[in-house]
Design a protein around this nucleic acid. Structure first.
Length: 369
DNA sequence: CTGGGGACGGGGCCC
DNA sequence: CGGGCCCCGTCCCCA
């Protein structure tokens, strides 16, 4: 069994690596194609705010608890943006780098690992800087952290000290030539701003990192601030985290189990699970096998049953080519088959290298065909 | 031990 | 955004 899980994880790792490469290639191509349009690739501050305010009007009690601070932060974001029509022309461009409706948006939630986001944001920001440079608004060369504008800033006046070691340089100075004016009249905001007249900073209240622009802060909150992301999408009942609020809500149902059977009182996470359970009481079996006319209450069970009518079953042992209707049967078989194989190998040779054969053991026939 | 069925969980997609 | 549904998967039980 251990070997089975190991081989499975090996395969999964390989697939993950290739998927990761493909995603990066996809992202790069997306960015390059978007670069062909002068308005592309630039996320607006409005977009940042919009995505930062994911759940303002959410009336789900549980989610409210999870996000009880978000509304305040969102409001603060609004206050931090005193003049939406401020100079950064990019704010008027109603375009997001990764449109929600594009195929990339369906891929996007899978990219929520910190590495992917860092990579993604780095590329998008690079293009952002290039566009700004083309427009003559900023220098395309990021200022080093030792730039005089930073050295001269009164770091001590910050609510918390600026951590200059923060890896992503876009926060440091690239847009500092024309930052939107921080709302110094807002009490909450003003406490997190640098009082320096020329280097007002926007500070993340989650991790204390500060930024020269509101956009930089928004980007940080959206993509990099672990505290923010974790708070937005982590389940309060367990350690699971999700890339979207909808996925989190769906998961939370597995804890709250809102659907209860009126007959036996058993609770389920979703209505259709309850519906299937009720069939165990009523005896209803709406799914019938077209071959033997046997009826089933569960479609998945019918599907598994259909495998019994087929000579070629879905899951195949790559070692002995025997096929199975279910993965669990294949796993059981694999254990024994692997042990037999190892015994044979041990008997014939003292070679201990059997990784390759074991790796192919768990590949389902559906994937190997 | 093997094969199959029953019951159920959970992520994702579609409307 | 939520509900319904699909699909894949697991666990348990039994013949």
């Amino acid at each position: 069994m251990m070997m089975s899980s190991n081989t499975t994880s090996n395969i999964a790792d390989e697939e993950t690596m290739t998927e990761s490469d493909n995603r990066k290639s996809f992202l790069i191509s997306s960015l390059l194609s978007a670069a062909s349009s002068s308005e592309s690739m630039v996320e607006t501050e409005e977009d940042d705010e919009e995505e930062g305010m994911l759940h303002d009007d959410d009336d789900d009690e549980i989610v409210k608890e999870l996000e009880h601070n978000d509304e305040d932060e969102a409001e603060e974001n609004n206050n931090n943006n005193p003049n939406p029509k401020q100079p950064i022309q990019l704010t008027q461009i109603p375009h997001r780098a990764f449109p929600k409706t594009s195929p990339s948006s369906t891929l996007f939630p899978r990219l929520m690992s910190s590495n992917d986001f860092s990579y993604l944001y780095y590329l998008s920001y690079h293009y952002f800087a290039m566009q700004m440079s083309k427009n003559g608004q900023i220098s395309s060369t990021p200022l080093p952290l030792s730039h005089p504008t930073l050295l001269n800033s009164n770091i001590n006046s910050l609510k918390k000290p600026l951590k200059s070691s923060y890896p992503l340089t876009p926060t440091s100075s690239s847009c500092s030539s024309s930052p939107p004016s921080p709302n110094l009249t807002n009490a909450t905001t003003s406490t997190s701003l640098n009082s320096s007249s020329t280097n007002s900073r926007y500070q993340c209240d989650g991790c204390s990192k500060s930024y020269s622009t509101f956009g930089g802060l928004s980007k940080h909150k959206q993509f990099h601030c672990v505290a923010q992301i974790k708070k937005q999408f982590q389940c309060k009942f367990c350690e699971k985290t999700y890339n979207s609020l909808g996925a989190l809500k769906m998961h939370i149902r597995t804890h709250t189990l809102p659907c209860k059977c009126k007959i036996c009182g058993k609770a389920f996470s979703r209505p259709w699970l309850l519906q299937g359970h009720v069939r165990t009481h009523t005896g209803e079996k709406p799914f019938q096998c077209e071959i033997c006319c046997r009826a089933f209450a569960d479609r998945s069970n019918l599907r598994a049953h259909m495998q019994t009518h087929s000579d070629i079953k879905k899951y195949r042992c790559n070692n002995c080519s025997k096929t199975f209707s279910r993965m669990s049967l294949l796993n059981k078989h694999t254990e024994n088959c692997l042990q037999q194989q190892q015994q044979q190998q041990h008997a014939t040779t003292h070679s201990s290298t059997d990784d390759c054969t074991s790796t192919s053991m768990l590949v389902p026939a559906a994937f190997s065909i």
